[in-house]
Design a protein around this nucleic acid. Structure first.
Length: 636
RNA sequence: GCCGCCAUAGCUCAGUCGGUAGAGCGGCUGAUUUGUAAUCAGCAGGUCGGGAGUUCGAUUCUCUCUGGCGGCUCCA
């Protein structure tokens, strides 16, 4: 006679079942219509297999793909399935670990590099397993048995050794494959029909010289349908890749002779100039002064700034007159030299020096990525020299400016606060105070932020701004960094109201980050549909037939006279063809001018993204577009 | 930088089991003068990424270099 246990269900009902009943059976009886989505369960908030026998009274709940924990269980089970496929395909492969990630999962193997043929075989093995509905069976075994079982796998032996003495060691069997694992898992492999391998690659070993592990990345969904939706979404995202659109719209290009050095074409340069103008307008009203400092300095400058020691591998160097020079990777040294060029008074602070100069960074070849990661870049950079008391108000203003700018671009951004690294310069108390100030300001901003302990620069804590590209890859754009070190290294001082000499603090900051990365991210964000103020061509006028060309040209000149980027598309091609082209080029406003319009001095306007046309008088169209451009409206 | 993959016309791609290549779009020319997502015809355009090797012969096979892509690491 088994004892009964009382189980509290998510809806508040309680059921009594015999002790030892699988929690999955209880949940299935409770919600039979939804049970096929149940992947695992929570028993007293602990994730367990659906087969877990309830042993005591308590609270239970199902886990589905919609719960992060349930999602992770499905991803991790998918990783097991991959490992099973790998071991069946390459028996010498040693699985190491296979955790879920934000996007999906990966599994690392100690094995020779994979080939595409391996992948085909691995996929086939996985499919066979899914077809066979192989259950995930949990076993708890003794430490000695575990060590025997994984005698050939030093990684697993390491995990066993790391398991605290009292803890159970569990393994999961899937068909003939056994993996060391805490679990829980989905009930059987038929739950993994929506698994997909995204790719494979070697990963850089943690310790120098160690053999590289091979990683297989994948993603799992509860059903094939959901996987298909995901793959469709990825295909759509690939279409808005900034490299593709950059080529289609002739914004920029790269050539073999200058890897990582963007070549800005007229259309792209136009966008950059508009962005520059946008930022510069703000600088003027916010009390900045623009400067320009050399692109190249003698190495002694970098020895002083610390770049020679900490950033050496990223410096482009040149030898001039037998002296070693380096191309500047950042603008800070130049600004330090300016500040230190004469005695300074507290009355000059905050001193805000902005510089948009080309910077050179010798980034590792394998990391170059379109405009997102380049070797020559321009930041909307500034260095603000402040007193300790001025830090807070100054950064508050910067965060306001970030909000305003990213709202204009309709970008969703998040902050990352990076705090004191293990090896840091300066006083811990200063760091604590600065970090507390930054975090307080972030909390006030109301924008999502996370803290990365120990990730700060060696010279000070920082706030980074992140936005994501079309493939949901995060990119850092702007950054706000507090720096106590460069002022010290460059022996910067100002005379305070008390007559004493004090050391300023420097705020390094960029808002959009670099034109290169910002343009890249924004292309993907707007999918090439530039807001009118950024669009390389804002208005295109199409005369219906040859006899309308003169009138159309006259109107184009009027538009241009009003400061708009307008152009004529003559009648060499059919009207439908020209409309199609304008549509594909994402031109915000297309005006058609024919007999009807000529008569009434109007223009028939096609607004990007809308089906129906509007007929406006010519001055009306000019005023309408000019107004939207001036206000930097996002949509046509 | 590490691992794998890729490189054919301006672009997107096909092709050659080793006998030096094709399409669509784009470009140019001509005809058409067009009313809201592709008018028709003709022509031009390629030492098949660079170098070396194997071979009677290499765009094709091998090696190597360069560049790109996806990851890893790093980062604006």
């Amino acid at each position: 006679m088994t004892e009964g246990v009382d189980l509290l269900l998510p809806d508040g009902h309680t059921v009594r079942v015999p002790s030892g009943t699988p929690v999955g059976a209880v949940l299935r009886d409770w919600a039979p219509d939804r049970a096929s989505r149940f992947l695992a369960a929570l028993v007293e908030a602990r994730p367990v297999d659906l087969a877990f026998p309830v042993a005591g009274s308590g609270r239970i709940a199902p886990l589905t793909f919609d719960d992060r924990a349930g999602r992770d269980i499905l991803q991790h089970s998918s990783a097991h399935l991959v490992a099973k496929g790998v071991v069946e395909t390459i028996p010498s492969a040693r699985p190491t670990h296979g955790p879920p990630t934000d996007e999906g999962f990966y599994y690392d193997f100690d094995v020779r590099p994979f080939t595409p043929t391996d992948l085909d075989q691995i996929r086939a093995a996985m499919d066979r397993s899914i077809q066979a509905r192989e259950p995930f069976r949990r076993r708890e075994i003794s430490r000695a048995d575990a060590e025997r079982l994984f005698a050939e796998n030093r990684y697993k032996l390491g995990y066993i050794a790391d398991t605290p003495a009292g803890d159970a060691i569990s393994v999961y069997d899937t068909g003939a494959f056994t993996d060391l694992c805490r679990g829980p898992h989905v009930p059987d492999t038929s739950f993994l029909a929506g698994v997909h391998i995204l790719g494979f690659s070697a990963i850089t070993p943690e310790t120098e010289g160690a053999a590289a592990l091979q990683r297989i990345r994948g993603v799992g969904f509860p059903t094939k349908r959901e996987l298909d939706d995901y793959l469709k979404m990825r295909a759509e995202a690939a279409r808005r890749d900034h490299r593709t659109i950059g080529q289609q719209q002739e914004l920029f290009l790269f050539q073999d002779v200058a890897p990582g050095f963007p070549i800005w074409l007229p259309n792209g340069m136009l966008v950059v100039r508009e962005l520059e103008r946008y930022v510069t307008e703000h600088l003027r009203s916010a009390g900045y002064r623009e400067v320009r400092t050399p692109l190249m300095f003698h190495r002694s400058v970098y020895e002083r700034s610390g770049h020679w020691e900490h950033y050496r591998e990223n410096l482009f160097t040149s030898t001039v007159d037998d002296q070693e020079f380096a191309w500047k990777p950042m603008n800070c040294p130049g600004s330090m030299l300016i500040f230190g060029s004469r005695p300074r008074s507290y009355r000059e602070l905050p001193l805000r020096l902005a510089e948009f100069a080309p910077l050179h960074r010798l980034e590792a070849s394998g990391t170059l990525h379109g405009l997102m990661r380049v070797r020559e870049l321009v930041q909307d950079d500034a260095h603000i020299f402040v007193t300790e008391e001025q830090i807070e108000p100054e950064i508050r203003v910067l965060l306001d400016w970030v909000r305003s700018a990213f709202t204009t671009f309709r970008l969703r951004w998040s902050y990352e606060l990076s705090t004191r690294p293990p090896s840091f310069l300066g006083e811990a108390a200063d760091w604590d105070r600065a970090e507390a100030t930054l975090e307080k300001l972030l909390r006030e901003s109301g924008v999502e932020y996370r803290v990365s302990p120990g990730e700060g620069a060696f010279y000070g804590p920082k706030i980074d701004i992140h936005i994501r590209d079309s493939m949901n890859r995060p990119w850092q754009t702007g950054t706000i960094q507090l720096d106590y070190q460069l002022p010290r290294r460059f022996a910067l001082e100002y005379q305070g109201a008390d007559g004493q000499l004090h050391r300023p603090v420097v705020v390094h900051r960029t808002i959009l980050g670099t034109w290169e990365r910002f343009v890249g991210v924004f292309i993907e964000h707007c999918a090439g549909r530039w807001p009118p103020w950024l669009a390389p061509v804002q208005v295109r006028i199409l005369p219906v037939a040859e006899r309308h060309v003169d009138a159309a040209r006259g109107f184009v000149e009027e538009l241009q006279g009003a400061g708009l980027r307008a152009e004529l598309a003559g009648s060499e091609e059919s009207l439908p063809k020209r409309i199609r082209s304008a549509e594909l080029e994402r031109i915000p406003y297309v005006g058609v001018l024919g007999d009807r319009e000529a008569e009434s001095s109007t223009v028939s306007v096609r607004i990007r993204g809308t089906k129906e046309g509007r007929t406006l008088s010519r001055p009306e169209l000019i005023a309408y577009v000019a107004d939207r451009v001036r206000r930097r409206e996002y949509d046509p």
